[in-house]
């Protein structure tokens, strides 16, 4: 199947305030899709709909469909807990568990839902995830360091390793670099490109240069509407909509 996720007429409300208006888009498997737009355009709200992260927010409501493996994730038959193991997430602020060691941080998701694994299985999974997150060489001799003692960039890569450890198919990243310095940002961007061989990645960003560097596809959001979505090269050179052009040439946003 070409598409990992199909979004159909997705609307979302916080209370009576509608924040997403009839979003329809396909998210290509094993590619990087950027969701770009000015603050308040609904881009974060949108990707948090893709793993039902809003479930605990009082007053939040969606309409429309999000198809994952051909099934609507908002149907009653879907267990959000199992869905989130398949659709992982990395957040804007690095959020490692502060009092767990780096090792435990990566291993924690593997122990959820009553799963028992031997110490060696865990060690293997942790090493694999840390290697994928380009953190193994830095941390292999310091796996007992607390999550809170790492640098910001390391914390964010630790969070990526933690998300990868549970072997998701899709990785949602909500402005993963906005709290990081340029060097850490470059590392994460490189990582995103490497990971897109095996994972479907959706990245929220308000940074056009970043979207240009890392994306295969770009979706441009404005005030809760999806203005257009296309291959990255097309969006940045020859956008179909005037508003997209105004945004990428810096005339607003």
């Amino acid at each position: 199947m070409e598409n990992a996720l199909k979004v159909k007429d997705l609307c979302a409300w916080f209370g009576n305030h509608q924040v997403l208006n009839n979003i329809t888009m396909d998210i290509r498997r094993h590619a990087v899709t950027s969701v770009m737009g000015p603050s308040g355009c609904g881009k974060s709200t949108f990707i948090r709909c893709l793993n039902r992260m809003h479930d605990l927010t009082p007053g939040f409501r969606v309409a429309g469909e999000v198809l994952f493996d051909g099934r609507d994730i908002y149907s009653e038959k879907i267990d959000p807990v199992l869905l989130r193991r398949k659709v992982g997430m990395v957040f804007q602020q690095p959020n490692p568990f502060p009092r767990m060691s780096a090792f435990e941080n990566v291993a924690v998701g593997l122990k959820f839902n009553g799963k028992k694994r031997s110490r060696s299985e865990l060690a293997e999974a942790v090493e694999k995830s840390l290697r994928m997150a380009a953190l193994w060489d830095e941390l292999k001799d310091h796996l007992d360091r607390l999550g809170s003692s790492l640098s910001g960039g390391q914390q964010q890569r630790l969070c990526i390793a933690r998300a990868l450890a549970v072997e998701p198919e899709v990785l949602l990243m909500d402005e993963p670099c906005s709290a990081l310095d340029p060097v850490s940002t470059a590392k994460i961007e490189e990582l995103i490109e490497d990971l897109s061989d095996k994972y479907t990645i959706v990245v929220v960003t308000h940074n056009m240069q970043q979207a240009g560097r890392i994306s295969d596809y770009v979706a441009f959001f404005l005030l809760g509407d999806l203005i257009e979505m296309d291959k990255a090269a097309r969006i940045f050179t020859n956008p179909a909509d005037k508003r997209t052009e105004e945004y990428i040439t810096g005339r607003f946003g």
């Binding site: 989130r84 957040f91 959020n95 568990f97 924690v108 998701g109 959820f112 839902n113 998300a163």
Partner: peptide
């Protein structure tokens, strides 16, 4: 964000409470 970290890894509501209390 700490609660959401647990949920995003496929933790249940109970696992979320257990981890954030411990942390």
């Amino acid at each position: 964000l700490q609660k959401e970290a647990v949920l995003s890894l496929g933790g249940t509501h109970w696992e979320m409470i257990r981890i954030v209390i411990g942390q």
